[in-house]
């Protein structure tokens, strides 16, 4: 289900302020997502994978981690060349594959291949609790932060509950098929899951009240911006800077 953070080898990079990593991930994603020039996209792609190799993260594991997203991109390749109007670049039997369609699909693929590894490196290697605290210190609304943390904690419990319910149904000879009985059983299962989640939320709130909760969360983590983080901030600004600069220069020659 939810993947664990990828282990990042110890290095000065690992010890930088997590807020810096989150801000960089956001800036880099915007820079690449808004770029349209091939050179800018290529630079983004290069920066992301170069950083992964420099930080000692195995590119193969990163690739495996982000692979599911490329299923979606495959779907775009199947659709865009056929549907975007424009001159045909090549023909697949009777079907013309339009040049703008192929360019669009290629652009999206390159953007994904730059942004996803960057996020995996910058954020996917942080423990969820640290992400939560960093977001809180970045003044992201508290409710959103705790939504993230509670999701992380309870998604496993809810998954386990789903498995229990499904096992119980199977043990009583339930075989899913395409019939009304199957649909009804799954509807009951899902309804039960929602109900249990709601009851659980109620109990968790009670448990929190018992431990002195009064509407404000406090955190253990003390996130500090150290002197060396200033240099890191400059270094981390380079990749989004390059992408934006290339895009700008190529558009306004």
């Amino acid at each position: 289900m939810l993947p664990e953070p990828l282990p990042l080898p110890d290095s000065p990079f690992r010890r930088i302020d997590p807020r810096l990593r989150i801000v960089t991930a956001v800036l880099f994603s915007f820079a690449v997502a808004l770029a349209s020039e091939w050179a800018a996209l290529g630079a983004g792609f290069g920066c992301a994978w170069l950083a992964i190799i420099l930080c000692g993260l195995s590119p193969w594991r990163v690739l495996k981690r982000i692979a599911p997203a490329f299923g979606f991109i495959l779907f775009l390749w199947a659709v865009l060349p056929l549907t975007v109007p424009g001159p045909a670049l090549l023909r697949l039997g009777p079907l013309p594959l339009s040049a703008p369609g192929i360019a669009l699909a290629g652009g999206i693929t390159l953007k994904a291949a730059a942004i996803l590894p960057a996020i995996t490196l910058l954020i996917g290697t942080l423990p969820v609790a640290t992400i939560g605290h960093a977001l809180q210190r970045l003044r992201v609304p508290e409710k959103l932060v705790y939504l993230l943390l509670f999701c992380y904690r309870y998604i496993f419990v809810i998954e386990e509950e789903y498995r229990r319910l499904e096992r119980a149904a199977r043990l009583r000879s339930f075989r899913p098929g395409t019939n009304l009985h199957t649909y009804r059983t799954y509807a009951y299962l899902i309804a039960m899951l929602f109900l249990r989640a709601a009851l659980r939320a109620d109990q968790v709130h009670r448990a929190m009240l018992c431990r002195g909760f009064h509407g404000r969360f406090h955190t253990l983590e003390e996130i500090r911006f150290r002197a060396t983080d200033r240099y890191w901030a400059l270094a981390l600004a380079i990749p989004p800077g390059i992408v934006t600069a290339l895009q700008w220069l190529l558009l306004h020659p």
Partner: peptide, 30 residues
């Protein structure tokens, strides 16, 4: 409630933080 500790029947109700340390520290922080 500050002076009474209630252990819930289901531990998954009681423990809601991502890590053990965070959860145990939740009460003292409050």
């Amino acid at each position: 409630r500050r002076r009474i500790g209630l252990l819930f029947q289901d531990a998954d109700d009681q423990l809601f933080s991502p890590t053990v340390l965070e959860d145990v520290a939740f009460g003292p922080l409050n």
